[in-house]
Structure formats: structure tokens, C-alpha cells
């Protein structure tokens, strides 16, 4: 960590320690890209504060030992999946809890694909380390910064990533420490469900997303009585399949598809 912060001039690059190619004068903390990354990250982190706090509070009520649930902020570092895992653990089967969190995070494949061109000419160490920090907000930030060169992209990505990572730890820790003081009759668990409703509703842009949501909820109601809360996975699978069929039908009816049919 000190190597990242200290930039004393050296005659030979260290072949082992990752090089950030920072200017050879002054501290990296004065780098304008680093400051820009922090400045642009702050507004995106503010909405995550109550989310992190509620997650921390949910950790104290989870069947998972609290310290293990808290460690998920380090190993998983993804709010919705952590919340799903923490609330399902011990209530649903181990596999259901894991599969739910894993499936929620599968959207990160799109982020990885979207940023691949920016990572292609980067040093190997960065291609391994950088993706760890590509959460929703960091993806939104770095994907929009096409003006950055290779070095600036590294500094920007790592700075934004470390900012979100450390802030997330602080907020979820606060939730763990203070959340247990919240009276149980406040039913703070409901806040998790309302938060998820917002996460579903805000980004919806396509009909298939609406279908996914309605079919997912409907199927899980139908299968609520399955053991180990397997209805959750059945509902999720039904929602994804219904959305797939919807997209296929829409595409089949699109003008381009009709034109191909008429030519055939």
C-alpha cells in the first residue's frame, strides 16, 4: 500500500511491485486524476449509505454469524447479493442462498464485457486486480470516462474502486454496530424488501424486464410452499425464461425480422 502512496524517484522500475506510472514528482495523492475519481465517486456513494447501513443491521439479525456476514463486505463487495445471502442464510438451504446471490451478481459479466477493450492493453497485474472493484457504480463511472489514457484509466479505476470499497466497509460496520440498537418492532427487515423493490423499479427500460419481474414474483408465490425456500429459485428461473420468450417474440415481430421472412 505504501508503494501506491509514495512516489519517490527511482532509477529502475521494480519488476515485482506493480507500477502505476505516476509522475516522478510529488505525491500520487496530488494527482488530478485521483482527485477527480474521488470527487466524482462521492455523489454516487451517498445513496448507498442507507443501503449499507440496512445491510449491516440485517447482518446482526442473520442466521450467519455476524462476523462472517460482515466479512462478505470484503469477499463479495456487492450490496444486493450480500443482502440476499445474509437474509436467506440459515432460512433457505445453503445452496439456495448461494445460488440466489450468485445469480444476482451474474450481471457483472456485462460489466466485464463492456470494459474489456479498456483492460486489453493494461499490465497483467491490473487486469487481475482491477475487475475486483467493478461494482455497479464504478462501472458507471469508468465506462463513461473515455477521455482517460491507459495510466489515467488505472489510477481512476483503482481510486474509485478503493473509495467505494473502504466506504462500503465503514458503512456496513456502522450498520453492524448500531443496527442491533434498532428496536425489533420497527421491522427494519421490511426496509430490505422496499429497497429491493426500488432496485427493481428504477432501471426497468424494457417490456421483458417488467415480464421478468412479474413472472418472477408470481411463480415464487405459486411455489412458496416448496421446502428450503426453493420457490425463490423456481421464481427466478421462471422470470428469466419469461423475459427470454418475450424478447424472442418482440424480435420476431420486429420490422427487420419481417423483412428477412419476406425475402426468404
Amino acid at each position: 500500500m505504501m508503494m501506491l502512496l509514495s512516489t519517490q524517484p527511482t532509477s529502475e522500475p521494480n519488476p515485482i511491485v506493480p507500477q502505476l506510472d505516476v509522475p516522478m514528482h510529488g505525491s500520487i495523492l496530488k494527482d488530478p486524476i485521483l482527485r477527480r475519481a474521488v470527487r466524482e465517486s462521492v455523489p454516487l456513494f451517498i445513496p448507498a449509505i442507507p443501503f449499507g447501513f440496512i445491510l449491516g443491521a440485517a447482518m446482526t439479525r442473520s442466521e450467519l454469524p455476524t462476523w462472517i456476514a460482515w466479512l462478505s463486505s470484503i469477499t463479495v463487495f456487492a450490496g444486493a447479493a450480500q443482502l440476499a445471502m445474509v437474509t436467506s442464510a440459515g432460512v433457505a438451504s445453503w445452496w439456495t442462498a448461494v445460488a440466489t446471490a450468485v445469480v444476482i451478481n451474474s450481471r457483472h459479466i456485462m460489466y466485464s464485457a463492456g470494459l474489456t477493450p479498456r483492460f486489453q492493453n493494461q499490465p497483467r497485474w491490473f487486469r487481475w486486480v482491477g475487475p475486483f472493484f467493478i461494482i455497479d457504480q464504478v462501472f458507471a463511472l469508468v465506462a463513461a470516462r473515455s477521455d482517460l489514457d491507459r495510466r489515467q484509466f488505472r489510477i481512476y479505476t483503482l481510486t474509485a474502486g478503493l473509495f467505494f470499497f473502504s466506504s462500503w466497509l465503514i458503512v456496513t460496520t456502522a450498520g453492524v454496530l448500531l443496527g442491533s440498537a434498532v428496536p425489533t418492532n420497527w421491522k427494519i427487515e421490511m426496509a430490505v424488501a422496499v429497497m429491493f423493490a426500488g432496485l427493481v423499479a428504477i432501471p426497468i427500460q424494457k417490456l421483458s424486464a417488467v415480464v421478468a419481474s412479474v413472472a418472477g414474483a408470481g411463480a415464487s408465490i405459486l411455489f412458496l410452499d416448496l421446502p428450503n425456500r426453493l420457490g425463490l429459485l423456481v421464481g427466478a428461473a421462471a422470470g428469466i425464461m419469461a423475459a427470454f420468450v418475450t424478447d424472442e417474440l418482440i424480435e420476431a415481430r420486429s420490422p427487420a425480422a419481417r423483412s428477412e421472412d419476406s425475402q426468404a
Partner: peptide, 22 residues
């Protein structure tokens, strides 16, 4: 098709999760 399907994962899973939670 794969990318399109991934876009439906979050609303499907989160909606199923909401029902199971409440």
C-alpha cells in the same frame, strides 16, 4: 441473446426474493 438474458436476471431474482422475504 446471452447479454439480453443477463439484463433480465436482476428483476427476476429480486422480485422472487421480495416475495420470499415478506
Amino acid at each position: 441473446r446471452f447479454v439480453r438474458t443477463l439484463q433480465s436476471v436482476a428483476p427476476a431474482v429480486l422480485s422472487a426474493l421480495i416475495v420470499t422475504m415478506i
